[in-house]
């Protein structure tokens, strides 16, 4: 019988990404309800030394495959190894992050394991011994409860939503062989062009300062950049601003852009089109600054200021600076 709550961790350059701890903490909670073990898979090159860190977040056992073939990530190498471990051990639940890498890998695993998966979940619980997932659909315009009837029951977790909880275990570490011939891999990463802005990606940001049509032009985003710098935030944009060519595509928040869930979302000059609200509606706190009192964004905002954003934002930057000093 399928047993064990498994996670596929994610690391870059030998450092765990936060989603790995979110996965471990969530798996621990589910495993305790089921009376099962938490087992983590760690793939990479020169990463054996970090495996023990997972014990801090409730992992009982780590399977480590340490081989140059796993760096940089390719779907082929990772999916083959994870699928072979999963087929050998038959876990009841398999969790991954709904990060760029996790989305690519998890979907391939659904194919390899011929199972079902709830994507980008925001809540997971055990009901009558089965995994019940809650996930936004239509970019958050509604939510679906999903039950997977095959094993492993797979789910991917939206980054930044599940809490990281320390729960020290003495994780046992097992090295596993790599069943891959590098010559057989059909994809190859030729280049990694790092974003040198030093900003956290929108999907992982704790705070987002976002601007829409009300910014009036690309040159005015400097006031949002200044506020973002003080807050340690990432700057986002509405579809209107991206389509106008004011901001790059990667900054777009909304149904056809990024779906985000920061602790704080500051919407400046954004009216709140349905497709935008869908993309940021799960933010913990929403602030709207807009001179139009009837803008739909105010219906979603926790705090609203009806005024000229070109006057409010610089003042807000000053005030926040004072508070943080």
């Amino acid at each position: 019988m399928a047993k064990g709550v498994w996670i596929v961790t994610e690391q870059r350059y030998g450092t765990f990404r936060k989603i790995s701890f979110e996965l471990a903490s969530t798996a621990r909670k589910l495993a305790d309800q089921l009376g099962e073990e938490v087992v983590a898979i760690l793939l990479g090159s020169g990463i054996e030394g970090i495996a023990g860190e997972l014990g801090k977040y409730g992992v009982d056992k780590v399977y480590v495959a340490d081989n140059a073939v796993y760096e940089p990530y390719t779907t082929d190498a990772h999916a083959t190894t994870v699928a072979s471990l999963v087929k050998e051990h038959d876990p009841s639940i398999l969790l991954l992050g709904a990060s760029a890498q996790g989305k690519d890998l998890s979907a391939r695993l659904v194919g390899k394991l011929a199972t079902g998966m709830a994507t980008d979940c925001v809540d997971l619980k055990i009901v009558e011994g089965k995994l019940l997932a809650s996930r936004p659909m239509y970019a958050g315009k509604c939510f679906g409860e999903v039950m997977v009837s095959s094993y492993p029951q797979m789910a991917s977790l939206r980054p930044n939503v599940f809490p990281v909880v320390e729960n020290a275990k003495n994780a046992s570490i097992t090295k596993v062989d790599t069943p891959i011939d590098p010559g057989q891999l059909k994809t190859k990463v030729l280049d990694v062009q790092k974003d040198t802005s030093g900003k956290v990606d929108l999907t992982e940001a704790n705070i987002i300062v976002s601007g829409g049509r009300g910014m009036k032009g690309p040159e005015n985003y400097v006031i949002l950049e200044e506020l973002a710098d003080i807050l340690g935030a990432t700057v986002g944009a509405s579809r209107a601003a991206v389509d106008a060519g004011w901001r790059p595509q990667k900054d777009q928040v909304g149904q056809t852009g990024k779906v985000v869930s920061p602790n704080l979302y500051v919407a400046c000059g954004i009216s709140g089109a349905i497709q935008h609200l869908a993309g940021m509606g799960s933010s913990k706190y929403i602030v709207a600054i807009n001179k139009d009192p009837d803008a739909p964004i105010f219906a979603r905002a926790d705090y609203g200021i009806v005024d000229d954003l070109f006057k409010v934002v610089p003042e807000l930057t000053k005030e926040v600076k004072k508070l943080l000093e």
Binding site: A118, K141, F143, E145, V146, M147, D302, G304
Partner: peptide
């Protein structure tokens, strides 16, 4: 294998506050 057992509206957000004041 992955069945949507229920479709729900998004959780309601508590009503927000409009911040008043003399000036920006």
């Amino acid at each position: 294998k992955a069945k949507i057992t229920k479709t729900l509206p998004p959780p309601a957000r508590p009503p927000g506050k409009i911040i008043c004041g003399e000036d920006p």
